[in-house]
């Protein structure tokens, strides 16, 4: 088995482990997610980096030449953003909620076909920018979905007045709402840049293969416009962030088959 695939298997195991460790900590009524959770997420991230570096060297471009690589790249973006945002806001529990989604993406990657790298052509700047920035936007949408789930759990607990250990560990509900909004806006801007880059690509028919991306752009664009013009309630925003993420997932699923 090639070494780069081994990296992916090990990273997947790490994200699964991170999820299990955090879950155990919560069940054990520990007040904080253990450091081991953060450590395994970190190790998983390093393994993802090793995989992407290895593949990048092999294909001599951004390693998203097939579905397998694409899914690992999106999972990597998700973990990257988790480390940036989680560390900034000290949201230890974000790891708990990010780990299962990352694990799911990695699992989908493992199950997806991984044909040999295509014939290496010249590297186009706009093409590379389009791919990397668009997939990074998927990571932002994924994390917005995670924050949305955390919001909905807490909203349910507060409405029902059932507070438990999880309630004490979750970030304040208003912060979650703000994070969801900002991540969606951030992802939307990135995706817009990615689409502009796509137009500038040296391709005869850019609109054809980009149709799913346009759909995703329209969904998130609609959400951003609605929120800015009419104001979306925090709960509706959270539900929308969770439901909207189905679109990128479906797109990735389509690419996978």
């Amino acid at each position: 088995m090639p070494i780069d695939r081994i990296y992916v298997y090990l990273a997947t195991a790490c994200f699964f482990g991170g999820f299990v460790f955090a879950l155990q900590a919560l069940r054990g009524n520990q007040s904080r997610t253990p450091r081991i959770n953060l450590s395994v997420m970190g190790v998983g991230f390093i393994l993802q980096c090793l995989f992407l570096a290895e593949r990048g060297r092999a294909v001599k471009q951004c390693p998203v030449t097939n579905t397998f690589e694409l899914l690992v790249f999106v999972a990597w973006c998700l973990v990257l953003l988790y480390f940036v945002i989680g560390a900034t806001y000290r949201w230890s529990l974000l790891g708990l909620f990010t780990a299962p989604l990352t694990f799911l993406l990695q699992l989908m990657a493992i199950l997806a076909p991984d044909p040999p790298p295509p014939v290496i052509g010249p590297v186009h700047f706009w093409n590379e920018l389009h791919k990397s920035v668009s997939l990074l936007s998927y990571g932002a949408f994924g994390l917005a979905c995670v924050a949305g789930v955390m919001f909905l759990i807490q909203d349910h607990q507060l409405k029902k007045r059932r507070l438990n250990t999880l309630s004490f560990n979750l970030p304040p509900i208003h912060y979650l709402h703000q994070a969801t909004r900002r991540l969606i806006l951030f992802g939307f801007v990135l995706l817009s840049v990615g689409i502009i880059a796509a137009f500038l690509m040296e391709r005869s028919n850019p609109g054809h293969s980009l149709a799913p991306v346009y759909v995703i752009w329209a969904i998130y664009g609609g959400m951003v416009c609605y929120d800015f013009t009419r104001g979306m309630s925090a709960r509706k925003g959270a539900i929308a962030s969770v439901l909207a993420f189905v679109a990128p997932l479906v797109t990735l699923w389509i690419f996978a088959h």
């Binding site: 807490q154 507060l158 304040p172 509900i173 208003h174």
Partner: peptide, 8 residues
């Protein structure tokens, strides 16, 4: 505590 849970 609830206020801090909501607003931080």
């Amino acid at each position: 505590e609830l206020a801090e849970k909501l607003f931080g």
